[in-house]
Design a protein around this nucleic acid. Structure first.
Lengths: 286, 286
DNA sequence: TGAGTGTCATAAGTAAAATTGATAGTTTTA
DNA sequence: TAAAACTATCAATTTTACTTATGACACTCA
């Protein structure tokens, strides 16, 4: 492990993050409780250390340069680690209950590893994971039934929360599937966001379709697709053996699948830690 | 994201790591290029910040307290991030070729995600992954054929390298499998470390066995086990559908599977980055 | 067009902090 | 019991960071 590379304080990182998020030195100075000139010097130190500009100074606002974007991701991870270390050492035995809501397919695919690690690090925490459709999760969250929810969302329409995952959404069919017209579809039932997106895209492209099979679970959908009942829409990495993406056909392109993490403003220390853990773990992969 | 928690410099982290690794303030001071008293004060600052001791001062050497162990893992990750950020910003366009050697099962299971992320972050790097048995990897590494290798090892016998993964090794059988005596085994061919470990354990327990099927690849082994040709030995998380761990029987317990990353002392910047990436990514999960 | 405003950068002085070198206080070793 | 090998502590010094005040710049609006 190389130990050169110039050193900096987590204070610098926090200032940097605040500036990146507000787009404004003065406002950021307010947040971190220091003078504007202090932040100016801090950024200067960072920029000199890295030998490149991190912010583009326009008159009305400062925006991140490409290098700044890169550094932001590192800065956030480092601050997260710092806070996590602090939490664990100050109050080693975090405990309590966390109610986490998540889409079913995400729960089946990416979450197990992430949650397993968390459990190992915090054995006295009661994890309570519920799977449901995004709309129900949102409703439940507002009703106070969850501490943390992971929801699907459109990349365009952002409703708060932090993006923790993004991957292409593709049309998928069984390996031995033959093209047909009108399209046979295998989809989740009504308020599913992928379903809505797929149907809207087809309508826009004026492709006729009909739904052959409906299953609320990912496993059910996959089974139906494998059985040749139709094609479906899936995140690219969730394709199991026997199902492949449909390429080069005239199916409409789909927007990326995006998963965001939403948490309460005021939340327990332990939920905060799980949120950080999820963000940190997924950021590495996505 | 909470922004309290006391702030510290990456310099402190490097000192801390050096002390933890040498078990000696004076030697560590030499490494980081500062006086012994400086390190003493730095550690004091950390300990006061966290409100707990990080080192246990015995007369002959200092050792980490349990809290120190926890902090060490965070410290390492933070320094790794710091170095990675630095590298990417100083020389944005890292390029070159990396020759990575890895066990086949590991390559199939955990590595794809990790490498995919790396590729996305460093598009101009040529990744060259070769799968082989640990013994061959070791030989190839010594012969200069690899920049980096991942190898299986016994938790007891450590030969250098950093542990990046650890998980229980279990006996596994097809779901419809019936117990039998002598045991029928499905294993990889000769110099496989799991094979050796399984057979040694059985011999120690004086269980008779015979090998029914031999396949060099994980897929081949799984197919044979599913077909009921015998039981095998697998890392607990690699069990696919249709194969389950054998519990409660009188099969001998197996030591954990452990994967270590070995790299040259003098290696290219880009290999260094991949090494860091692998360690960082897997540390979160394991 | 030109005063007003909001913005970041810079400068000089000051406050804070880290580092050092010397030293005291341990415990082990010979 | 003296020497050796440690770490902790202290006071002096050096380095670093912060603040206030001011400058420079570019938009905005009369």
């Amino acid at each position: 492990m190389p130990i050169d590379a110039f050193d900096f304080d987590t204070l610098l990182l926090k200032s940097f993050i605040a500036i990146a998020e507000t787009g404004n030195f003065t406002a950021a100075a307010e947040i971190v409780g220091r003078s504007q000139s202090a932040l100016s010097l801090q950024v200067k130190k960072l920029e000199e250390g890295f030998g490149c500009a991190l912010f583009q100074r326009e008159t009305r606002a400062v925006t991140l340069t490409p290098q700044g974007e890169i550094f932001l991701s590192y800065a956030k991870r480092m601050v997260q680690l710092q806070w996590e270390a602090y939490s664990r050492l100050r109050e080693p035995d975090v405990q309590g209950e966390i109610r986490l809501g998540t889409p079913e397919d995400f729960a089946a695919h990416y979450l197990p590893d992430v949650l397993a690690t968390f459990r190992r690090q915090h054995p006295r925490v009661l994890l309570n994971v519920a799977c449901d459709l995004t709309l129900n999760l949102m409703r439940g969250f507002k009703a106070g039934e969850f501490d943390l929810i992971l929801v699907k969302r459109d990349p365009q329409r952002v409703l708060g929360g932090t993006r923790v995952w993004r991957e292409p959404l593709v049309w998928a069919a069984a390996d031995n599937h033959q093209p047909e017209d009108p399209l046979s579809l295998v989809l989740a039932p009504q308020p599913c966001i992928y379903r809505a997106r797929a149907l809207a895209a087809l309508d826009r492209a004026r492709r006729p379709w009909h739904i052959t099979y409906t299953s609320p679970s990912l496993a059910g959908t996959l089974a139906a697709v494998k059985a040749g009942l139709g094609i479906t829409v899936l995140p690219a990495n969730m394709l199991p053996a026997g199902i492949h993406p449909i390429r080069g056909s005239r199916l409409p392109r789909l927007a990326d699948a995006e998963i965001a993490l939403i948490k309460r403003d005021e939340t327990s220390r332990i939920s905060e830690m799980l949120a950080g853990h999820i963000m940190g773990s997924l950021e590495r992969i996505s």
